[in-house]
């Protein structure tokens, strides 16, 4: 009850603004995420040994997973040079997603579409640039827009190819991550605050239901953990498959 009185209700956009107006909670969280990732890999890999210590093993297996399972298997031998980017992307998305269920932070920066849109733009520029560098500007366009098909249906197919590769891909990349994290955040918020609302309701029979609401909030936090891991992985795998599509020789 005391807690419920202190809780700002209903939650508003103002909750995100910290003391200087231009610094929001998201800004600080991104700084923290970047700092944590840099420290994590620098410290654990500062003094590499042939027989790895536990920390080194952790960093190596994380990077090794992205390099072998994502870059190597999906893109092929050419893909190994993208492993550093993919590993950075994976660790950044995973960590910022994880903020969504860390007690005391409990919001992921990826619930703001600006961050996921920026990540999607980077992946988009990457796969287009990689394709143009390998095949040259015109050949890359020809390769990605023309499929072997009868000439009569080409006018129908080319706009579809164009929109699906150069419009829908970056949009879905950004929206998928954003919508998943945003929906997860809202669901947790609804069940947690809903518990307080039920507890404070004047009807006595609604008060015990607040316990059910909080149990749901805890259960959904575990579901969120799954979504967090899955969405970070999906973003990286899709980026890798787009790069692979830009690099592939012929259909």
């Amino acid at each position: 009850m005391v807690l419920a009185d202190e809780l700002p209700f209903p939650p508003s956009v103002e909750d995100f603004h910290l003391v200087p107006a231009w610094v929001s909670k998201f800004t600080v969280l991104v700084w923290i995420a970047v700092a944590l990732i840099i420290i994590f890999f620098l410290v654990l890999y500062r003094n590499p040994k042939l027989v790895p210590t536990r920390g080194q093993w952790l960093a190596e297996s994380f990077y090794g997973f992205v390099r072998d399972r994502v870059a190597g298997d999906l893109i092929g031998h050419e893909g190994l040079r993208f492993a550093p980017y993919l590993a950075t992307l994976f660790s950044f998305i995973l960590l910022t997603n994880l903020f969504g269920i860390v007690p005391g932070i409990q919001i992921s920066t990826n619930t703001h579409i600006a961050f996921t849109a920026m990540l999607a733009v980077i992946s988009y520029v990457l796969f287009v640039a990689v394709g143009i560098r390998k095949f040259g500007f015109w050949h890359y366009w020809k390769k990605s827009l023309f499929l072997p098909a009868p000439l009569a249906v080409q006018p129908i197919l080319i706009p579809i190819e164009f929109v699906s590769t150069f419009v829908v891909r970056p949009l879905t990349l950004a929206i998928r991550l954003f919508a998943n994290m945003f929906a997860g955040h809202v669901i947790l918020l609804v069940f947690t605050l809903g518990g307080f609302v039920l507890l404070n309701s004047s009807a006595w029979f609604l008060k015990p239901i607040s316990v059910l609401s909080w149990v749901m909030a805890i259960a959904l936090t575990f579901l969120e953990a799954l979504v967090i891991l899955l969405q970070a992985y999906v973003f990286v795998v899709l980026t890798a498959s787009y790069v692979q599509g830009a690099l592939v020789e012929d259909h």
Binding site: P159, V163, S164
Partner: peptide, 15 residues
């Protein structure tokens, strides 16, 4: 999946 959606979007919009 992407093809289907973008196909309907593009030609639906032109229509």
């Amino acid at each position: 999946m992407g093809y289907l959606i973008s196909g309907i979007l593009v030609w639906g919009f032109i229509g």
